[in-house]
Amino acid sequence: WEITFERNGKRITVRTTDHRLLELFEKLWRNGADERELERLAEEINR
């Protein structure tokens, strides 16, 4: 799966075969987690 999240013109794409990681990322994104931390998390998930 691949999903791109966008907020205030900032886009972060997450790619993984584990839908649970996408759900976790989406919850953090929707709850306003720090964008720098989300970028780092996305990099780890995308590996």
Rank of each mutant, 00 (worst) to 15 (best):
W1S: 06
G9D: 06
R20S: 13
E44N: 04
E43K: 07
W29Q: 03
E6F: 08
E35N: 08
H19V: 14
H19I: 15
E39I: 11
E39W: 05
I45D: 01
R15P: 01
G32R: 02
L24A: 12
H19T: 11
R7E: 02
E26G: 04
I3Q: 12
I45F: 04
W29I: 10
F5P: 00
K27E: 13
R20Q: 12
E26V: 14
E39L: 10
E26Y: 15
T13R: 06
N8Q: 05
R7Q: 06
V14N: 00
L21A: 14
A33Y: 10
R7K: 13
F5A: 02
I12R: 00
E23A: 14
N31M: 13
T17M: 12
T16C: 01
L24H: 12
T13H: 05
W29L: 07
W29Y: 10
K10Y: 14
D34W: 10
E35Y: 14
E6N: 04
L38H: 00
N46P: 01
T17A: 13
T17P: 04
K27D: 12
R47Y: 10
L21P: 00
E43T: 05
E37S: 09
K10S: 11
T16N: 05
E44C: 14
K10E: 04
T17S: 14
F25H: 00
R40M: 14
N8V: 02
E2L: 06
E43R: 06
F25K: 00
L28G: 02
R36P: 07
L22M: 11
H19K: 15
R15V: 11
R36D: 15
I12D: 00
L21S: 07
G32S: 05
H19Y: 14
F5E: 00
G9I: 00
I3P: 01
R47C: 06
E2C: 08
F25T: 00
T4K: 03
K27Y: 14
R20A: 14
I3C: 13
L24T: 09
G32I: 03
E44K: 07
D18S: 09
R20F: 12
E37Y: 13
F5H: 03
E43M: 08
R36I: 15
L38Q: 01
A33F: 07
R30G: 07
L24G: 04
F25W: 04
L24Y: 12
E6Y: 08
L28N: 05
T16Q: 02
V14L: 14
G32H: 11
L22D: 01
L21R: 05
I45M: 07
T4V: 13
R47I: 11
I3L: 13
L24C: 06
T16D: 01
L24Q: 12
W29S: 03
A33K: 04
K27S: 12
T17L: 09
D34A: 09
E37K: 05
E35P: 07
T13D: 02
R20W: 09
G32A: 04
I12M: 06
K27A: 11
N31V: 06
L21K: 11
L22P: 01
K10V: 13
N46S: 06
T17V: 08
E23C: 11
D18W: 03
E43I: 07
R11M: 12
N31K: 09
E26A: 09
E2I: 11
I12V: 07
I45V: 04
E44Y: 14
E2M: 05
H19C: 06
V14A: 01
A42I: 10
L22I: 13
G9A: 03
H19D: 07
E26F: 14
L21I: 09
L22Y: 05
I12P: 00
R40W: 09
R20P: 05
E35T: 11
E44T: 07
E2Y: 08
E37F: 12
V14D: 00
E35K: 03
N8A: 06
L21Y: 08
A33N: 05
A42E: 04
F5G: 00
L22K: 07
D18Y: 03
R40K: 13
G9N: 08
G9Q: 03
R15C: 04
T4Q: 06
I45T: 01
R11S: 13
E6A: 03
R15G: 03
R40A: 15
A33R: 04
N8C: 05
N46Q: 05
E2A: 03
T13A: 03
R40P: 01
E35Q: 07
I45P: 01
R36E: 15
E23S: 12
F25P: 00
I45G: 01
N31W: 06
R7L: 13
E23W: 08
G32F: 07
R15F: 10
E2W: 06
R30L: 14
K10A: 06
D18C: 06
H19R: 15
E44S: 10
G32Y: 07
G32T: 03
K27H: 14
G32W: 04
L21N: 05
E39M: 11
V14G: 00
E26W: 14
R36W: 15
R15E: 03
R7S: 12
K27P: 01
K27W: 12
T16W: 04
V14C: 02
D18V: 05
K10W: 12
E39G: 03
L24W: 11
N8T: 04
K10F: 15
A33L: 08
N46F: 08
R40V: 11
R20V: 11
D34V: 13
E44D: 10
W1V: 11
L28W: 10
N31C: 07
I3E: 05
E44M: 10
R40D: 11
F5L: 11
E37T: 14
N8G: 10
E35W: 15
E23F: 08
K27I: 11
N31L: 10
W29T: 03
L38G: 01
N46E: 09
R36V: 15
R40Y: 09
E44A: 10
E39Y: 06
R30C: 08
R15H: 09
W29H: 04
W29E: 02
R47A: 15
A33C: 08
L28T: 09
E37I: 11
L38N: 00
L41E: 02
E44Q: 09
K10P: 01
I3D: 01
L41D: 00
E23R: 10
R20D: 11
T16H: 10
R36S: 15
L38A: 01
G32K: 05
L38D: 00
N31I: 07
K27Q: 13
W1F: 12
E43N: 09
R47V: 13
R11V: 14
A42V: 09
E2H: 07
L38R: 01
W1N: 08
F25D: 00
L41N: 01
W29P: 01
R15T: 11
N46K: 04
D34F: 14
E26R: 05
G9H: 03
R30P: 03
L22W: 06
L22Q: 04
T13F: 05
L24K: 09
E35R: 03
